[in-house]
C-alpha cells in the first residue's frame, strides 16, 4: 500500500460550498484588431521571401495560431504552417513570434503588444520549405544520433525494473521534451554551425544519462564530448527561455558537461 496517496487519505470535500459571486470570470470577452506580419516564401513561385500583413478582429482568449487560422481560412488559403494538437503538446507549431521562439498555440494574442504588427517567421537555422514550414530532418537526425532509447545490459526481469521515486525524479524535467525545436533553433551556435547537436538532442541524451535504469550513459557522453557536441554550448540561455515546456535546458546541458568532466577525472 502506498502511504503517500493523498486522494485516499484526504477528507471528503464538502457537498456544498458558498461560491464567490465573481466566479467564472464574467463579462464579455474583449475583442481587438490585430495585424500579423508574416514572412512569406514559396520557391515554387519566387525565390524571394517577403513580409505580408494581415489585419483581423480577434478575441482576448485567442492565440497566435487562431489568428493564423483566420488568415488561412478567410483571407489567404495558401498561407502554410504546421499545427496539430493546438494546446502545446504535439510540438508542430514552433515559430518565431516577435523575434522569440514560441508555440503559436500557446501564445495568447493579449500577452503580446497588439498595438504594433506581430511578426511571425519560421524558426531559424533549418532550411525553409514554404512560409512557416521548415525542413525538420536535420533536427531529428541530431536527436537520433544520441541514441534516444533505453539501453539496459542486465538480465531482463519478468516484472518491471525497480526505480525509486527519487531516481525517477532525477530526469523528470527532460522527459517533458516534445521535440518542437524551439530551443535548438533559438541557439546562436546552431545558427552558425549546422553540425552542432543542439539543445534538444542534449536534453534527450540527459533524459537517458540520468535514468538509473540505463547502462549506456558513457556511450552518450562520448558522443556529446565530440567537437560538435556539448562543448559548443555558450550558455546564452536562449534555449531555456524558448522552451514551451519550461524545461531547464541550459541546466541540463551543464549537468551533461559536468558528467563528462567527472568521468574524465
Amino acid at each position: 500500500m502506498s502511504p503517500i496517496e493523498t486522494a485516499e487519505t484526504a477528507p471528503e470535500p464538502a457537498s456544498k460550498i458558498e461560491l464567490p459571486a465573481h466566479l467564472g470570470g464574467g463579462g464579455d470577452i474583449p475583442t481587438f484588431d490585430v495585424t500579423l506580419r508574416v514572412r512569406r516564401y514559396d520557391p515554387e513561385f519566387s525565390s524571394e521571401s517577403t513580409w505580408e500583413d494581415f489585419t483581423m478582429t480577434m478575441y482576448g482568449t485567442d492565440r497566435v495560431l487562431d489568428a493564423l487560422h483566420k488568415v488561412k481560412w478567410e483571407q489567404d488559403g495558401s498561407l502554410s504552417f504546421r499545427r496539430s494538437c493546438a494546446h502545446g503538446v504535439c510540438g508542430s507549431d514552433a515559430m518565431r513570434i516577435n523575434g522569440r521562439n514560441r508555440l503559436a498555440c500557446k501564445t495568447l494574442l493579449k500577452d503580446l503588444d497588439t498595438t504594433k504588427p506581430i511578426t511571425v517567421e519560421p524558426i531559424k537555422g533549418l532550411p525553409v520549405e514554404k512560409d512557416l514550414i521548415v525542413d525538420m530532418e536535420p533536427f531529428f537526425q541530431s536527436y537520433r544520433e544520441i541514441m534516444p532509447f533505453l539501453i539496459n545490459r542486465g538480465h531482463e526481469p519478468s516484472k518491471e525494473r525497480l526505480q525509486s521515486a527519487e531516481e525517477r525524479e532525477r530526469f523528470d524535467d527532460t522527459t517533458k521534451c516534445i521535440l518542437c525545436a524551439a530551443c535548438t533553433s533559438s541557439c546562436p551556435v546552431f545558427w552558425t554551425d549546422g553540425q552542432y547537436f543542439g539543445p534538444a538532442a542534449i536534453v534527450n541524451a540527459h533524459r537517458f544519462i540520468f535514468d538509473s535504469r540505463d547502462d549506456a550513459g558513457d556511450m552518450r557522453l562520448e558522443i556529446l564530448n565530440d567537437k560538435e557536441g556539448v562543448w559548443r554550448c555558450r550558455t546564452t540561455f536562449n534555449c531555456t527561455e524558448a522552451c514551451p515546456r519550461g524545461i531547464q535546458v541550459t541546466q541540463a546541458i551543464a549537468e551533461v558537461k559536468q558528467a563528462i568532466l567527472a568521468r574524465q577525472v
Binding site: 502506498s2 518491471e160 525497480l162 526505480q163 521515486a165 530526469f171 540505463d214
Partner: peptide, 20 residues
Amino acid sequence: VIDLEKMGLPFNRTPEGRID
C-alpha cells in the same frame, strides 16, 4: 505495461520502486 516499462517509459513509482 511491463513492455513499456522495459522500453524505458518513466512511470511514476511507489515508495517500493514499483509502478504507481
